[in-house]
Nucleic acid binder design. Structure first.
Lengths: 343, 343
DNA sequence: TGTTAGCACTCTTGAATAGCGAGTGCTAAT
DNA sequence: ATTAGCACTCGCTATTCAAGAGTGCTAACA
């Protein structure tokens, strides 16, 4: 196990590197207030810490930087929680300042504010309606060829999707369709709508509507949920301000990765509630080797809805980011619960 | 005026630079097939072209690169239109391959495909509903505190917006509200909805609904249109692959600018129908000094709806991009008109 | 035995220098 | 009017050099 002195040194190294982005050497460490022993002692300790894998050198005679393992230890054991200052809290509260009631907009806004507060990139994973139950479905005809289906779920999420009509459809057909759907699908989880339509609704459609086949596929397609929830970003360009990304190849691979929603989704689909931290290679994505991802989940009541994450360099201000994310996600949960929980 | 030989040289310089991104010198020019005179002659001509402002040097003894003015002349007079090849056409058609009927998704998809085809950044300005007429408005109650208003415009655009309810509101109030709105607002342009509500609807609300004041503001706020139409992007990271943006400051200022929707909107809100080309400083935005923006508009019927643009380096493949944009925007107009034009 | 001072050594960084290659402008010959 | 020839310029790359920061090791010290 590490001695107290080693822990202290590790902690100071990480803190220092987080703020300077420069390898930290024994001499500059020895000048720190909290450190009362000589640079030679520090060198010995650092040598041990390196052997244990907590810190590394960038070249033979450089100062040390924390390794992924070092950050991991720091995050797990050495982190002192930071209280948000008033400006931060005020800023977070401004998420709800405008009168917004759209769930997605609130989430999107959170990502924006969070990225501004941290100067890192924020990623919000939109509300998962997958397991929501259908509360209401309404059909509005648009013209001869198309109509809109409006879906309301039990957690108050509303979506409208357009679908095509068979040539022969008339107003009464649509009304019948709406009635059948409402009759059969209310209370059904969104993810199984498609299935249910083919299994239960099909029969009824056939009885009541001519050309039911076209209508069937059309409405079933429409109610298919997308493969993943929406992603919202804030501060995509912020990483350009981090010194570690002055390396052109690094910034390119990161930016290219961020553009591919699939890979981001892969990173962010984290289910454990609370705060999750992935450091550097723990993300299993070479473009993320120099990045850490901190994720917090938000819910309505007890039902976990989505997450909000900060993507920053491994050298990120863990303490601040964790505090912010924790605060925002709790806040978000409270607000959303109040706004949307069905009585 | 320029001599034929000068035009030829200008054209070859631009073509060459577009493909190599390297300043082009007299000797390499003289080796080109289409050029039958010596490098010394070319040097003289280039000297004249430089004096006229069409080309410039990067340093005293470098080859020449086109100036903004040079590109402008090239675009206006020297461009040979390029026919799309089969793969391109096929790719463009794939925009509509999936059965999508959401206007916004089609536009978004166009931006994505276009960015992939060009390797530049695509920006689509979403449909302007501003001048659309309200065709139908529907209110769906969600819970005690909130309801959704679904707005359908005459061009088939559907949107849902949530709004808050007064404590006292009951189902019959909402029904009344919906009736009043439908009675009074159908045919009214979306941009003047808010106004009309305060001027006409207010009186009626007062007569029929208790606590009408809260309801009035709530629904009026909800129907206020956003300050600008939605923007969709494709290939934001593509510019990282352009050699001119290996300069860190350039890429940072560009990326930061792209993140600010307001400035993009400013660039893209171009009303003339057809193809619009802005080269380098013509964009009046220092982050765009090394970029050109080519914009094409799309419509439903004769009503101009939005635009789709390509943002690339000034050294962009104008001919190809123009052909693509022209094709896509026409296609888009045709498809949308067929899908959405109200009969 | 743990701590520290001292020292030789390593490596990065930035500045200075030189040679190469591509390109220009000018002049004189065609 | 065109072109060959030539001196000159500038960017690019490689090399060298010194300064500075840091390390590891050894020997002395409390």
């Amino acid at each position: 196990m590490l001695t107290d002195r080693q822990l202290l040194i590790l902690q100071v190294i990480v803190n220092e590197f987080i703020h300077s982005a420069q390898p930290v050497g024994s001499r500059s460490l020895s000048k720190k207030e909290e450190i009362s022993f000589s640079s030679a002692t520090i060198r010995n300790e650092m040598s041990d810490l390196e052997e244990l894998g907590f810190i590394e050198k960038t070249h033979t005679s450089s100062g040390r930087i924390p390794s992924d393992k070092g950050y991991r230890y720091y995050v797990d054991h050495l982190l002192s929680p930071q209280k948000l200052n008033k400006q931060d809290v005020h800023r977070v509260k401004s998420i709800y300042a405008e009168q917004i009631y759209e769930l997605e907009k609130i989430v999107q806004n959170s990502a924006k504010i969070l990225s501004e507060l941290t100067n890192y990139t924020a990623i919000a994973l939109g509300p998962a309606v997958r397991e929501n139950k259908l509360k209401k479905i309404q059909i509005i005809p648009l013209n001869k060829q198309a109509a809109v289906a409006i879906i309301v779920t039990d957690s108050g999420y509303v979506q409208n999707r357009m679908f095509q009509l068979p040539e022969t459809a008339d107003a009464s057909d649509l009304e019948k369709l709406a009635n059948i759907l409402n009759d059969r699908l209310i209370g059904v989880s969104i993810e199984s709508l498609n299935d249910r339509i083919y299994k239960e609704v099909a029969v009824l459609l056939r009885q009541h509507i001519k050309n039911y086949d076209f209508m069937l596929h059309s409405i079933a397609d429409t109610l298919l949920i997308p493969t993943h929830e929406k992603l919202f970003f804030g501060g995509k360009a912020n990483m350009l301000n981090q010194p570690e990304f002055h390396d052109f190849e690094k910034i390119r691979s990161l930016m290219t990765m961020i553009e591919q929603e699939d890979s981001i989704y892969e990173l962010v689909r984290e289910n454990r509630s609370g705060i999750n931290i992935k450091i550097g290679r723990e993300n299993n994505n070479s473009a993320m080797d120099n990045c850490s991802l901190i994720t917090a989940t938000y819910s309505i009541g007890t039902e976990q809805l989505g997450s909000i994450s900060i993507l920053g360099p491994t050298r990120m201000e863990y303490s601040r980011v964790i505090s912010l994310l924790d605060y925002i996600s709790n806040d978000l949960t409270t607000v959303l619960t109040k706004l949307y929980q069905s009585e």
